[in-house]
């Protein structure tokens, strides 16, 4: 079980959280003009990084808020968490 550091509530056990997948995935800015490839990228294609991964979590059974985390998917070790809207730390492969 992971121990996850909610930026608002502090460290809590994993079952309090919902995973939200890769972070910083931006919806096409002009949806009507986006190509099929761009839509597929946005909807279906994730980096699935083996290594440092910037990802979203939601403290669903706590404060309810979304935040981002940086985790190494080779070890499941968290390098840190940061608030939505903040830029990813420079280490992240985003």
């Amino acid at each position: 079980m992971l121990l996850i550091d909610c930026p608002y509530c502090g460290e809590r056990p994993e079952p309090e959280f919902a995973y939200g997948g890769q972070a910083h995935v931006a919806r096409p800015a002009r949806p009507a003009e986006a190509s099929d490839e761009a839509w597929a990228d946005y909807l279906y294609f994730r980096r699935n990084t083996r290594g440092l991964h910037a990802e979203r979590w939601r403290h669903i059974r706590g404060c309810g808020r979304f935040f981002n985390a940086l985790r190494d998917t080779r070890t499941d070790h968290f390098l840190g968490t940061y608030k939505i809207g903040a830029p990813p730390p420079p280490l992240a492969d985003t």
């Binding site: 079980m1 992971l2 994993e14 919902a18 083996r50 990802e55 985790r71 998917t73 070890t75 499941d76």
Partner: peptide
């Protein structure tokens, strides 16, 4: 498990 990983292990819960 809920999250992506390459560790070949998961949570006891």
């Amino acid at each position: 498990d809920a999250y992506t990983s390459y560790t070949q292990r998961g949570g006891l819960h």
